[in-house]
Design a protein around this nucleic acid. Sequence first.
DNA 1: ACGGATGTTCGCGC
DNA 2: CGCGCGAACATCCG
Length: 272
Amino acid sequence: MPELPEVEFAARALRRWLGGRRIASADAPESRIFRGSDRKEFSRVLQGESLDWIERRGKYLLIAFRGGAGLLNHLGMTGKWVRVPPGAPLPSHVRARLELDSGEVVAYRDTRLFGRIAVHRADELFSLPEIRGLGPDPLVDGVDAARLHERLARSQRPVKVALMDQALLAGLGNIQATEALFLAGIHPARPASSISEKEAKELASAILESLQHTLKIQGEGDSITYVEEPRAENPFRIYGRAGSPCPRCGTTIEKIELGGRTSAFCPRCQPR
DNA sequence: ACGGATGTTCGCGC
DNA sequence: CGCGCGAACATCCG
């Protein structure tokens, strides 16, 4: 699920859920999400801990505890933090859980196991190669149009593939890149190097607009608390809407595959 | 019923 | 080095 907006919501939810609470116990079954780390260490260092701070950089969560331990967490494709009331049954595919002094359980679910949790020292989280390798975070650093243009100019890849490069800009995935290109009126298959300075400027605004739009529509309610949510309808403008009319001009939305991912675009609003 | 697609990332080979 | 592809995995849809 998670691109920048979902990860931002996970950060906010975890701040609320863990803030001012003590972790009575932590545990996790053996699973791939601890690759490069140790699930037993996870349980050991979190026992009795309380939250110090949580930050998001791109699609990564950095979680620091007062005792000095830290977690680096990536939600992969299907990772999600959920809160389970005291006594309520745990959902399926829980890969790590924190039992709070209140009896609530804060759990990390991840059906496809593409996510990751790694234990580090809190004071080294920002120095990890995963974080140092990220480009600017649109919400934290803003999107500098000139810098974006310069980076795009160096790449022969389709502009949509370049936008999903986390070293170029941190946090965009298939949905946000698709939506931003639509808003900017740029065809996703255009070579990144063909984007003009003016287009880069429009793209920079479109990226922020798309992220903020998504944050706004997904921000209502406490939907991250675990409940069986009814399948919501597609809230995006053109992502996943191939075959439907363009919301702006009515032309039928098309799709193409770029970098192994499906991209929807309006052939009229986003000409080659 | 089964093949194909799914919001991500990494590593390999050219 | 830049780029493309397949793999890691489970579920859902047509």
